[in-house]
């Protein structure tokens, strides 16, 4: 199929009128995925910002069928929805899940792992804003090192989150999933292409899309797309795909020097000192050594 572009995607809006903060990256991730998947997508969303802003009865902001799952049960409800549609003899549908980083890498990880193991035919999208945002910014296992959250405060001895961001993409890939990808709301063309590709692969698919949250990151509402781009360009969020046992980059690091501006521009990192930033750089460089050795170049 042709690559989705601004010109050839549908004019329909499936996620519209929602109450997300101005400039919310997560809402852009949901909007663009649904524009690619179309009216036959059935969406499942657990507790988290995207369900909280999308379903405020009677303000229901999805034009397609959509429902809220338990926090831990996104992938298992998707399995049920898919089985139900199949049993009813429905054709040409897409079951898609949109869960946050907490809903994916912490509380929902076993349901997701089970669904990958069953290889059900559906698309799981993790919109990653790097904390539990809907409850006011608590650390998840996808919060990066050094970030301030209400559960990882910055003081004299401990400066924000002391743990590294969990490598969810490779954890999912290690299941031998048919298709997995990382994406970013900063590069929507690449994201749409991956959603389209996922919709054409049979079996379980996983897309992990970085979706900055101006409210929790401490950036301006008009900066979310720029910061999403910077995360990829400075090498902290490589865009890649996994399939048939192989990893391939779709966009590499552009400028390692950008990392400092990326960190310094966000309030959640403002307590970090130069050695902390050097530590983040060293971790990034070690990861890129591995990527350059074993992933296919773009």
């Amino acid at each position: 199929m042709t690559r989705p572009t601004a010109r050839n995607i549908t004019e329909d809006e499936y996620f519209f009128g929602h109450k997300a903060c101005a400039g919310c990256g997560g809402s852009l991730a949901v909007r663009m995925a649904l524009k690619v998947l179309g009216s036959r997508a059935v969406a499942v969303l657990p507790a988290g910002c995207m369900s909280a802003v999308g379903f405020n009865f009677p303000q229901l902001c999805f034009a397609n069928n959509a429902m809220i799952s338990t926090f831990a049960g996104t992938a298992s409800m998707m399995t049920g929805v898919e089985a139900g549609l199949r049993a009813r003899g429905e054709k040409d549908y897409q079951v898609v899940g949109f869960a946050g980083d907490g809903g994916t890498a912490d509380i929902g990880i076993q349901a997701l792992s089970g669904a990958i193991d069953r290889n059900d035919n559906m698309i799981y999208i993790c919109y990653d804003n790097e904390a539990y945002m809907n409850t006011g910014t608590q650390k998840s296992s996808l919060t990066p090192f050094g970030a301030y959250t209400t559960t990882t405060p910055a003081g004299v001895k401990i400066r924000g989150n002391i743990r590294e961001k969990k490598n969810m993409f490779e954890i999912v890939a290690a299941h031998g999933i048919p298709y997995a990808a990382t994406a970013s709301i900063g590069y929507v063309d690449d994201y749409m292409a991956k959603v389209r590709k996922a919709s054409e692969v049979k079996g379980m698919k996983y897309i992990h899309v970085l979706a900055p949250c101006p409210t929790g990151w401490g950036i301006r509402p008009d900066e979310t797309v720029e910061y999403a781009r910077m995360a990829t360009d400075c090498g902290l969020w490589p865009l890649a795909e996994y399939g048939c046992g192989e990893y391939s980059l779709t966009r590499s690091m552009k400028d390692p020097g950008l990392l400092r501006a990326y960190i310094r521009g966000q309030k959640r990192f403002r307590h970090l000192r130069d050695p902390d930033i050097e530590y983040i750089e060293s971790k990034r460089d070690a990861r890129w050594e591995h990527i350059n050795r074993s992933w296919k170049a773009p």
């Binding site: 996620f15 519209f16 400039g23 919310c24 990256g25 852009l28 979310t224």
Partner: peptide
């Protein structure tokens, strides 16, 4: 993020009922 800009011929138009003014 809000889908409030529509394609309009070969230009665009804004839906001011739903634009939140984020500035993206």
């Amino acid at each position: 993020p809000d889908g409030t800009i529509a394609r309009c011929g070969n230009k665009v138009s804004v839906d001011y009922d739903f634009c939140k003014g984020c500035g993206i």
